[in-house]
Design a binder for these strands. Structure first.
Length: 492
DNA sequence: ATGTCC
């Protein structure tokens, strides 16, 4: 499969006579990292029923059905695969009023790590938090979070500032008919079935990090030293030289359960009806809008997405409380919460369209109609891109050119080595020493090798691709001071 | 990513 270069950081991938090509964003060095299967997945997605546009971002690599790092737009169909198993996997950023000096000693950072880990568990199946009984998530509150998302009621019950809802890309997701009641009804039905048991344990994962590439990271904010970036940073609420906290997490077991149920149900329908899978790939099952199957998927996606939203907001509140325990009087406020695994209804080419972002981040620039009622109408909203602890992470803002990429950018650096290969080829001591040398503390006795910076693409080259393609510009770089990660695989 | 096989 040949990509045809169209600019310094843009190319197209032909998808056949009847289809517009896949739009590819990335410098030549980055495009060389795309393997054949990743490109095949992009073509399968582009030629699938009802799909009008596919975009491939610089962090693209093989995913389930569609590449991770792609956008799939359809005005007529929904695709569970191009949303993925971790429904509404997202980034959030908390800005504190602490100067960088406040976390300069290793002792303080160790205390912060402990205070955070006590409140926020990581990894598989874990959800019981060290919090007062009055704030324990019961089935009723869990169900409310799933149906209402970040409603004032849910936030108040969890002790989260209700104003943080304004800092969410989407504070809530409604059901297929735009109602909350359809979600309540759907959740009731799901809880009747055996596929959705152990509900109490599942909802107790509210306020927990997952495993794998999920993390919490204490940062120092370096605002880009240019007038425009400084002005944008001020609107975002970023404070140069101050401590911030970046989180990457999703909808935990709840979203996984919902996604798995949908894949199975839709596969059964396809097999029953003898419908071919696009590119012969079961992970590209889909449903035409307006069918009971599409309605059920949209409802389940919304239930998972709402859980992810409340999970992130609770994590941010718990992180703030951990800081306040160690450094009394710390103030903090949410900069933004934005997803990279979600389908949203947006206007594309004057048509309401379901834009599926799979490992891709929404990028609306200044003046975009959908930002009119938000604090970011005149700047564009914050784009939160995790890089790696050593290269840093980035806060960006979309440029006008983002229209070309379906108003999307990448969602991070993108994996370079597969997990298995990283574990086999990287040296544990080299990985651990690289953190010590950079004076970055972690909660892990041994940092998971498959999550080492060396397992990911060169973040600066990825950012260069985004800027050169005219999609977005950097507002601030985030420098890691300590990292919270699930280390179950690293212990021996 | 994930009650890593209901």
């Amino acid at each position: 499969m040949e990509m045809i270069e169209t600019g310094e950081a843009t190319a197209i991938l032909p998808a056949g006579n009847h289809h517009s090509p896949v739009k590819v964003f990335g410098t030549e060095a980055i495009r060389a990292t795309f393997d054949e299967l990743c490109l095949q997945q992009a073509i399968n997605s582009r030629t699938a029923p009802g799909v009008t546009q596919v975009v491939l971002n610089p962090d693209a690599h093989c995913g389930y059905g569609a590449p991770i790092g792609c956008v799939l737009a359809s005005p007529t169909h929904v695709y569970p695969g191009p949303v993925g198993y971790d429904i509404k996997c997202s980034m959030s950023l908390l800005q504190t009023d602490l100067p960088a000096d406040a976390v300069s000693t290793r002792e303080i950072r160790r205390e912060l790590i402990h205070a955070i880990c006590r409140r926020i568990p990581t990894g598989m199946g874990k959800g019981a938090r060290d919090v007062p009984k009055s704030r324990k998530v019961d089935e009723k509150l869990g169900a409310a979070a799933m149906c209402e998302g970040a409603s004032s009621d849910v936030l108040a019950k969890l002790g989260i500032p209700t104003s943080w809802a304004e800092r969410c890309e989407d504070a809530f997701h409604r059901g297929h008919d735009d109602s909350v009641d359809s979600l309540r009804q759907r959740l009731y039905e799901l809880r009747q079935g055996r596929v959705f048991n152990k509900f109490r344990e599942r909802v107790q994962q509210l306020g927990s990090y997952g495993g794998g590439n999920h993390f919490g990271e204490c940062e120092v904010v370096d605002v880009v030293d240019q007038p425009e970036a400084r002005a944008t940073a001020e609107v975002f609420g970023l404070r140069d030289g101050h401590v911030a906290f970046l989180s990457h997490c999703g909808s935990r077991g709840i979203g996984h359960r919902l996604a798995t149920g949908q894949f199975r149900a839709l596969e059964a329908k396809f097999d029953q009806w003898g419908i071919p899978y696009p590119g012969n790939d079961k992970q590209l099952v889909h449903a035409p809008l307006g069918t009971p199957e599409a309605d059920a998927y949209l409802d389940d996606m919304a239930l998972g997405a709402n859980f992810a939203t409340v999970n992130h907001l609770l994590i941010n509140q718990l992180v703030l409380e951990a800081f306040q325990e160690v450094i009394p009087g710390t103030q903090g406020t949410l900069v933004y919460f934005i997803s990279h695994n979600i389908a949203r209804q947006e206007i594309v080419d004057n048509r309401p369209t379901w834009v599926h972002r799979k490992g891709a981040t929404r990028a609306f620039p200044a003046g975009h109609h959908a930002l009119r009622q938000t604090p970011f109408a005149d700047t564009g909203h914050p784009i939160l891109l995790p890089g790696n602890p050593q290269a840093g992470s980035s806060v960006m803002v979309a440029s006008e050119g983002a229209r070309e990429s379906c108003y999307s950018v990448n969602h991070g650096a993108g994996r370079m080595l597969g997990r298995r290969r990283a574990i086999k080829e990287l040296d544990q001591k080299t990985v651990d020493d690289s953190f010590t040398d950079a004076d970055i503390l972690t909660n892990c006795r041994r940092y998971p090798k498959d999550e080492a910076p060396a397992a990911y693409k060169d973040f600066d080259e990825v950012l260069r691709s985004v800027e050169k393609a005219g999609l977005a510009t950097e507002v601030a770089r985030l420098r890691a001071r300590f990292v919270i990660k699930d280390a179950s695989d690293a212990d021996d």
